[in-house]
Computed example of a mutant assay.
Amino acid sequence: MSNPQTDETNQYLTFSLDKEIFALDITQVREVLEVASVTRIPRTPPFMRGVINLRGHAVPVVDMRCKFGMPSMDDTVDTCIVITEVDLGGESAVLGALVDSVREVFEMMPESIEPAPRMGTSIRTDFIRGMGKQNDQFVIILDINRIFSSEELAVLATAEDLDSQTEATAEAI
């Protein structure tokens, strides 16, 4: 007896940075937030915007424009923080990704995703899971687990711990 084959589709959350469209696998996205008050943490990399308070937990926020070497831009009404789950040495860590705007969730068949090109994008190709198309526009599908090195994720985790310690100290005073 043979099993009928089912076409597997993947859902992606699309967002924009500058004039480019990017996507993240929806299974790694927890939620999308309006830009909130971000607390800057001293001695962190330039791409680290700071931390936000998300239901009592400090969540590091990364400016994706800065991380990808794009020119900085002031926040607008469309600027959002995409809360994602990132693999941090076998453990799941929560991270906020600051983006210009969130577009939509769409489905794409795995066979319609092409490998990352060697040239033509402003970001390193090892960050890219593949390239897709949506309404005649190319979509750069990111691998969120490869965007940050283990050292950078350790800095983000340390920043989260520092902020938690600062909050605890402030409450004790």
Rank of each mutant, 00 (worst) to 15 (best):
V105R: 00
Q28G: 11
C80R: 15
D163K: 13
I140Y: 06
L88M: 10
F106P: 07
R118T: 12
P117W: 02
V82S: 03
G96Q: 00
D74E: 15
Q165A: 15
F22T: 04
E91N: 12
L88K: 13
E20A: 13
K19Y: 09
R40L: 13
V35A: 07
A58W: 00
E91A: 12
I83Q: 03
L13T: 05
L17F: 00
T6L: 13
S2I: 12
S164G: 11
T169R: 11
E111D: 13
H57N: 14
G89R: 02
S164M: 07
E20W: 10
E91R: 13
T84S: 13
I147W: 04
S101Y: 05
M119C: 08
V94W: 03
E8Y: 09
I140G: 06
E31G: 01
F138A: 09
S164D: 09
E167S: 14
E151Q: 12
I141R: 04
R40I: 11
E85N: 15
A172R: 14
A36N: 10
F127R: 02
S101H: 08
T79D: 06
L95E: 03
S164R: 15
L13Q: 00
N3K: 11
D100M: 04
D143K: 05
P42S: 12
G56F: 06
D163W: 10
I128C: 01
M64C: 03
A170I: 14
V29W: 01
E152V: 10
V62C: 01
M131T: 03
I21E: 06
L88N: 13
V94G: 05
D136H: 12
D87F: 04
L33T: 01
N3P: 04
M70K: 05
E114M: 12
M108R: 05
R129Y: 11
E31I: 01
V35C: 10
V155W: 07
G89L: 02
A97W: 09
V61R: 02
Y12C: 12
G56T: 07
I21D: 08
S101I: 04
D100R: 00
E111L: 08
V32R: 01
E160N: 09
G69V: 05
L98N: 03
D136Y: 08
G120V: 09
V29M: 03
E34F: 11
D161R: 13
S112K: 14
I81T: 00
Q11W: 10
V29R: 02
T39M: 05
V62S: 06
F47T: 04
T39R: 04
I21R: 08
L156Y: 03
V82E: 00
R40W: 08
V77A: 14
D163Y: 14
V86A: 02
V94T: 15
Q5R: 12
P45C: 06
C80Q: 13
I26W: 02
L162R: 12
T84K: 04
